[in-house]
Simulated assay, not measured.
Amino acid sequence: MSLFSFMGALEMGFIFALVALGVLFSFRILDFPDLTADGSFPLGGATAAVLIVAGWNPWLACLAAAAAGAAAGLLTAWLYVRLGIMQLLASILTMIALYSVNLRIMGAPNLSLLGEPSVFSPFLTDDNAMWARPLALGLVVLAVKLGLDGFFASQTGLALRATGANPRMARAQGVPTGRLTLGGMALSNALIALGGALYVQVQGGADVSMGVGTIVIGLAAVIIGETLLPARLIWVVTLATALGALAYRLFIALALEADFIGLQAQDLNLVTATLVAVALVLPKIKARLWPRRAAPASSPATRATQAKG
């Protein structure tokens, strides 16, 4: 793999680390099967792109994109909590609706950001163009990871983790599970939309279809991270998720550049599906090979809730 391809994989890995952390929040912590990510990712990108073209500061555009993503997650949770629509169906309804919303926001299927400022513009020079963006994205992911670690260790974070692990018991202890689900889903999709906002600034444009497969990528990163670094401590869980996203993008880059395999750019979805399948099977293979080292059987949400720190 060339250095250019490696740095590009790091860029995408850090961006999708934000997506993976959002997916971790909904799927693992809240135990909420959420497909809103396929809509909130392009929603964040569309919002940021339109605002940057309109002259907004790119950082403020990213914050607005995160707020838009939070609104999308809040809508999904509201459909479930207030209207009683099942979780998966509620997220599908929101995802479908967001396709039209994103078209409305951009006013066209795509929007170019070539020549527009980005959050990376103040740091880019001719000498550091290759590594400045990955470094900046890595710092953003680190800040988000540390913020989540602190949140999960707080009283509200512990209550939210209890909500995902055992909502009936949490309600019996006086935990407002409905409000926490609304807030948790908002935060989850805010992170995913933030990833979308950074993605369009790296790619130089937004496209209404760029969210296709986002949830698959996020889940793959979470599963790969759990396989590479199984843990109960919550700060290790978030670290494993970020590392899983980086590993996923590096695997993709390696597969597409392996000439002897014969894969090309149009095979990206095939490679993605194969990697996800392998990631799903690896824990079972690992449990068979090293049964004594395998974690005791429990749901992912329970393992995350039992984590300390």
Rank of each mutant, 00 (worst) to 15 (best):
T305F: 14
Q203M: 15
S154P: 02
A132M: 12
A279G: 03
A153W: 06
V202A: 05
C62K: 00
Q264V: 10
L51R: 02
F32A: 05
L180I: 06
L30C: 09
A132R: 04
N269M: 12
D267H: 14
A165N: 08
D259R: 15
A170W: 06
A265P: 04
S154C: 10
L3I: 13
D126A: 15
G115W: 04
L282Y: 07
T177E: 13
P122M: 03
L75E: 02
G84N: 09
N269P: 01
K286S: 14
A186T: 10
V50N: 02
G84T: 07
V50K: 09
S121L: 09
T94C: 12
G69S: 01
R179P: 00
M1Y: 02
M86G: 10
W290H: 10
L268G: 05
S40D: 00
V141G: 03
A240Q: 03
L111W: 00
A48C: 10
A77H: 09
P109G: 02
N128S: 07
G69Y: 01
I105H: 07
E257Y: 04
L79T: 08
L137M: 08
A77K: 05
M12W: 11
Q264D: 11
A17H: 01
A61Q: 07
V141T: 13
A197T: 05
Y248P: 06
L268C: 00
G150H: 12
L243H: 07
